[in-house]
Amino acid sequence: MVTIETILGHTGEHLVLLLTTLFVSICISLPLAFASLYSKRVGYVIMKFANLAQAVPSFAVVAIVVPLIGIGFYPALIAILLRALLPIIKNTYIGLSTVNASMLDYADGIGLNKWQILRYIRLPNAYPAIFAGIKFASILINSIAILTAYIGSGGLGELIFDGLVGFNNEKILAGAIPAILIALTLDVIFTAMEKKLVPDYRK
């Protein structure tokens, strides 16, 4: 018998992990993406690393942190971070760097400095891409945060794995259904936020 309190408790743990990781990954990714814009070397290294992290299966990333830093909330956070950084960095970088060249040239021609070009031209043009990256990262985080229950992060994954081990369908569903609902909610929230923040200037 799974009580409503148990479900809420695990959902709470899951959400804390998810939101903390999302917040930290945004805080790390955006500056890194900006840095890659102004230094080709930095950009190269960051992209190489981020692509590498992407190529390794999620479960392996989760496993590999254990011998390095142990188990618990923070190791889980780091494991998820390694996977969540890439979509945000990559999308932000692409959004910032694929601005029409003659538009940048014109901005230069009317006397905008580098910072103003970033603030008024590059960034607004990159908003849609940045949003897409964050949205994708949040959904990725949601799913990896299930796996990290294996290394002691708690959360909905704990319910699911317990249920799987004990052939307890009720427990499996008690973990899986909230996880699915969270994924759908994230999608709805980010879509709404994007609509609100990015003016509809495209055809």
Partner: peptide, 13 residues
């Protein structure tokens, strides 16, 4: 004042 062909207007503004 600088005017160029075509593009130049910022699409997001």
């Amino acid at each position: 004042g600088y005017v160029i062909q075509n593009i130049g207007l910022f699409p997001h503004m």
